[in-house]
Amino acid sequence: MQMAAAMAPSGQVTDEVLIDIDRVTQVYASAGGAVRALDRVSMQARRGEFISIVGPSGCGKSTLMMIAAGLLPASDGTVRVGGRVVDRPQTDLGIVFQSPVLLEWRTALENVMLQAEARRLPAADAERRARSLLAAVGLAGFEHKYPHELSGGMRQRVSICRALVHTPPQLLMDEPFGALDALTRDQLVLDLQELWQSERMTVLFVTHSIAEAVFLSDRIIVMTPRPGRIAREIVVDLPRPRTLAMRDSAVFHAVSREITDFFLEQGVLRERAAGLSR
């Protein structure tokens, strides 16, 4: 909260580099031969920045996320966060996966509180914050529901609250809305933007959805098919907060177009099926 106050309201980010990914290469050993997942990927995220990573399936987005979180050692290259080399699982962050990964025997609130328990945060403060986060994503009144009593979108909201309850400086999200229907996705994208505007954490957001990336990001990193390389970095010059109507703006179209064209060029998208002729 204090940070948000210190920041310009328009959503300007500071120049301080928080996450520095430096020539990270990942090769998976496998029986069928080595798999090159990432090829010297370098990127930086400034504090408070919202960055999306877009790329075709299998290009190494999840791998990059794992390496950035310190959950997977890179085959080569380094990741620094706040200047410190990441060589073990980072704990100063929140992670959201494609599935909500909730503990089935804990209520929504208890799931969020797991994060606080693990970090031994003062329980009363943490619970207050957990409740306010749940309320912020429209889950007031659902605190004591169990995951199986919640819809897919609600569960993912709980998982986002769990990732933020300890006010981490970074939020890593790996296709968090991939399993949701279009309307729920739209709502969650709006909720996420609002959370980001009030919390001001640095977000790395992996997605398949060009529209999601353009809507949410300050900057979009476009990756090539495997082995993943960074092909483009596109700054999205739209004012904040972004509204659904902006999806019809010229800037929005131009950015979407640029990414789509790149995927067409790379053969990730094809406009005409190769085998069919008329």
């Binding site: 699982p89 980072q90 704990t91 962050l93």
Partner: peptide, 9 residues
């Protein structure tokens, strides 16, 4: 679940 636990410390 295990990755999450590790990231929570």
């Amino acid at each position: 679940k295990i990755l999450l636990a590790r990231s929570m410390g």
